[in-house]
Design a protein around this nucleic acid. Sequence first.
RNA 1: GGCGGCGUAGCUCAGUUGGUUAGAGCGUGGGAUUCAUAAGCCUAAGGUCGGUGGUUCGAGUCCACCCGUCGCUACCA
Length: 677
Amino acid sequence: MTRKIVVTSALPYANGPIHIGHLVEYIQTDIWVRFHKLCGHECLYFCADDTHGTPVMLSARAAGIPPEQLIEKVHREHVQDFERFHVAFDNYYSTHSPENQHFSELIFKRLDEAGSIVKRQVEQAFCETCNMALPDRYVKGTCPRCKAEDQYGDSCEVCSATYRPTDMVNPTCATCRAVPVLRSSEHYFFKLADYEERLKVLIGQGYTQPSVANKLQEWFDAGLKDWDISRDGPYFGFKIPGESDKYFYVWLDAPIGYIASAKNYCDREGLDFNRLWPGEHASPSDSDEYELYHFIGKDIVYFHALFWPAMLQGAGFKTAKKLFVHGFLTVNGEKMSKSRGTFVTAATFAEHLDTEYLRYYYASKLNDSVHDLDLSIEDFVNKVNSDLVGKFANLASRSGPMLTKKLEGRLGELDADGRALIDRMVAERSQIVQAYEALKYGAVVRHIVALADEANRYVESKRPWDTLKTDPELTRVTLTAVINAVRVLAVYLKPILPVYARKVERFLGLSELTMADLDSVLENHSINPFEHLFKRVEAKQVKKMIESSKEPETSGSSGDSSNDTPSFKEQCDMSDFGKIDLRVAAIKEADTVEGADKLLRLTLDVGRVDRNVLAGIALAYKPEDLVGRKVVYFSNLKPRKMRFGVSEGMVLAAGGGGKEVYLLEPDDGAQPGDEIR
RNA sequence: GGCGGCGUAGCUCAGUUGGUUAGAGCGUGGGAUUCAUAAGCCUAAGGUCGGUGGUUCGAGUCCACCCGUCGCUACCA
């Protein structure tokens, strides 16, 4: 049975280059697509650039070009990066396309008709200088909780607090540093909660891996919230029909890009889009002709397991059969880092190393789980050299040249031993196919390597270099088996190593190998001169690649390139300072707080009175070390009710929070209760 | 703290519904070879499967607790 399959990878954002982290997904997906094509299935692979939203708009502004020009440039770069890594999309399109606009408007309209869209006023930060509403990430300021400076508007990287930009102390616009104002605006919302039951059914049908389903259950338990799907202009995106200055939020039209890419392909290739992805003119039940699959990373599960299928359901479009979620890439066990040089772009990798190495390495470590995948440099070098060079390439290179140089390059026929070898290798087919299908590429690779080992042992046992002197025809028989083994391996490896497979095809004088070629053997056939298959990797080359990827660590933890002069707060006068009553206090008692791991309960001697303060310093100080110490106490801060009691003011400390807390201490002579001026 | 994941040889990872002496690759030691891109072959060493209890005739595999680690989430005025 010929299956018809449509596959997508997540749309990379058009604001930066493809890097080796992205490539986990594209390589994983591409292998799956190539595998299906190898099996003779109709398999179409669609993707596109995700082009809309504030970051693209601002990048274009900064570059002094229109966003259209920016995304065009990035599109070219992305296409080139994917080509280098042999990621073969059937269509690589753009969300900034007429098709995408059409489907975005259509889906929005249908969701509206279904009563799933509501309008509501929201308060948001607005920068009058930039003349735009500021997304959370574009507001910077001081964390309202730990007072760390230069934090994003949604959460603090120092103390991991989450808050709204409007809660920040001294918020500023991240681009121009102006102080944003609060503005009220009407936004459109998608009522996600209306789809809870239908989503649960979908997930119950095995839409995601079980571990992802568990995570989704947590979100269901927490309650599905309405999703803000509009943004006020100026915004780079599609205008909402009937509105003069409101646009679809980038995350609304991004996944619709899958549909747009498919539609664009169908129109070009003369395929019936309505059968491929039913919904526009037909109801989903009309056709199950095509199986639909999405590949994504775990960071965007919420969008693809909740918003996206709900949108499709609400608009009457077909939803995917499965969502395959993978983990992140780590390098040498750590997060990719620009300063360590492990943030390697696709282009840089391709400059230094054979891109098939990465395909092979990822394949050898990928499975169907959402676990992070570690690129261990040492392991990478070993695996490439040992498997690709030592096993696969070597098998061909110890048989092909001998045959072409000494035996006219002509295969003979298999004897019983040779037939047995090839039969054993072909017998693994169903196991390998199953493992490919189930995304267990690590198992695929282990199977194939074991077969290569067996073929290498076969050469060893037959010693063709000896028999060549005594019995050339027997040698021909041996090498016929070995060449057939090479051919079988090339078929199995083709989804992972398409270039290697092409070279083997050329060397063996064959046309495009497919899985069906395993049904036959190669006999009485002439082969071409051997061509080099893989070069060894030197650790040096990898080091060089890492070196050229290194960027100096920028100040601050955000990786942002803001200048180095510390930003001080707005000026104030003595009367402002006068409102603040700072006192010397002595710590009389300090205790841990039951149920709070960062809080200490301090009893302070503030002259004639005692005060109770809950201080977030438990990670930095032990209670017993604090008793007797003098501290600076903010006495007239309004008492705050907390889960663990009321805190009357606060003690002053430097540091970013967490373990980085350094209490201020007055010099000797200061007495509890003394005013600090 | 809550929820969830993870913790198997030096390294990277397999271990199917619990079933005989726990596996692979790389790396390391030894050996025999030399056709081959200094590749390949044989062989050895190396693990109380994070810890402690429990269920079971039997547990890396199930349960509880603990430790470590990661993610989300909460207090941290």
